[in-house]
Nucleic acid binder design. Structure first.
Lengths: 217, 217
DNA sequence: CCACAAATCAAACGATTGTTTGAAACATAC
DNA sequence: GTATGTTTCAAACAATCGTTTGATTTGTGG
């Protein structure tokens, strides 16, 4: 466990390299040789420290996701303290996105790269994560769902679930960085990759969607 | 070109099998041997008929996408004939989703499987499609963007682009079938996989997002 | 029937994959 | 210094990948 080369040990260097490459090429298209080369470690180090490529992938996710989800729950808890009689939809969405902005600005915790990875994993959960993700995510989803049910009492429980699903999709997709906008011939939207800029336009959209009338004409 | 085994020739059988497998496992994780086995054709048939795995992938996409996009444009054109003075946001969203519902109900054109593939390709465009997708999609996006700009005159052009991007993301994500809802411990939402049911809840959400006030408090 | 092109087939190609091996290098404790 | 356990390393492992080959079968037109 001595810090030889860099300031980081071998396992961490592997995690860092894998994080970037997984988000760039996906799980299958990223080889262990690409990872170990970028991390400047021996090829066998992956299987020595993690056991397999799949476990490495789970390690990349869980290293960041568990603390991040905890932060999301804490953010909502704090907001509820200040407003014990229930939060507005606006406050709920803002609370959910605040940790994302903080994380995006903090390269030490993965920054925008991990957010992109998270979005992609969520949009296309790999087999090796199908059992892990629900366990990691269910607490956060349930907390925010409960807050939304309180904020939208005129909607049925099922309808809130529908809209929460849509809202999550919108948010993940917006952060995934795949740029539907780039397909538009005209107008390169300025700041399309800046998380803070994304959130500025995203919040009104999501809030309006969540608070839409129950059955429009 | 004689129809030997089934009612379909070899190239079509390969396309059908690849379509299902690509949606199920992704591009990299789907081997040619899986495809040819499912299609009940010889392994070499893929390279004989298509040239390479990448070209096959492009073939799977373009076979369905080009006619579908044409249908989306035609749907908007028809709606504009009935309302030459401009469409409501509601009508625009409905027009865009109508071809998707028709396609989802038509297994002969790929049905829900192809819609899922389309959503995933859009969320995570493979390298071999990065040049193809913009060309196939730009016409549709530009047509609907123009309609939205007319329907939302109080918004700037950039803001419309932002919201169109969010709306596309919401729609694709909703159809991708990855079920954020399944992560929720409570309440299995009924009909979560039925396209018609999805659209019923999706339209109000997207319309509200698109028509949100410019700068909420 | 024959000639010619199209399509199918089993088999093998070289390359790359994740993983394992066993020795060498390192660290720590006595 | 010696012993012990941990980590690194070059090399090889079997398996699978996409692709190619060359012979064989099939279909078509004269």
């Amino acid at each position: 466990m001595s810090f030889t080369d860099n300031g980081k040990d071998t396992a961490t260097r592997i995690l860092d390299a894998a994080e970037v490459l997984f988000v760039e090429h996906g799980f299958e298209a990223t080889s262990l040789r690409m990872i170990t080369q970028r991390a400047a470690v021996n090829l066998a180090a992956v299987n020595y420290h993690f056991g397999s490529k799949e476990v490495l992938f789970q390690g990349v996710i869980s290293r960041r996701l568990a603390p991040y989800n905890q932060e999301c729950i804490e953010e909502l808890r704090q907001a509820l303290i200040d407003a014990p009689h229930g939060l507005s939809v606006d406050s709920i969405v803002a609370a959910y996105l605040r940790p994302a902005i903080r994380l995006a600005k903090d390269p030490a915790r993965g920054g925008i790269i991990f957010i992109r990875l998270m979005s992609r994993v969520f949009a296309e959960p790999h087999d090796s994560l199908r059992d892990m993700l629900p366990r990691l995510y269910s607490d956060v989803l349930e907390a925010y769902r409960a807050a939304l049910v309180k904020a939208l009492p005129h909607l049925g429980s099922h309808e809130v679930s529908w809209r929460l699903q849509f809202a999550m999709g919108t948010i993940f997709y917006a952060f995934a960085g795949n740029d539907v906008a780039r397909l538009l011939s005209q107008n390169n939207v300025p700041g399309a990759r800046d998380p803070q800029e994304i959130v500025k336009h995203l919040v009104p959209f999501v809030v309006a969607g969540l608070t839409a009338p129950n059955r429009p004409a």
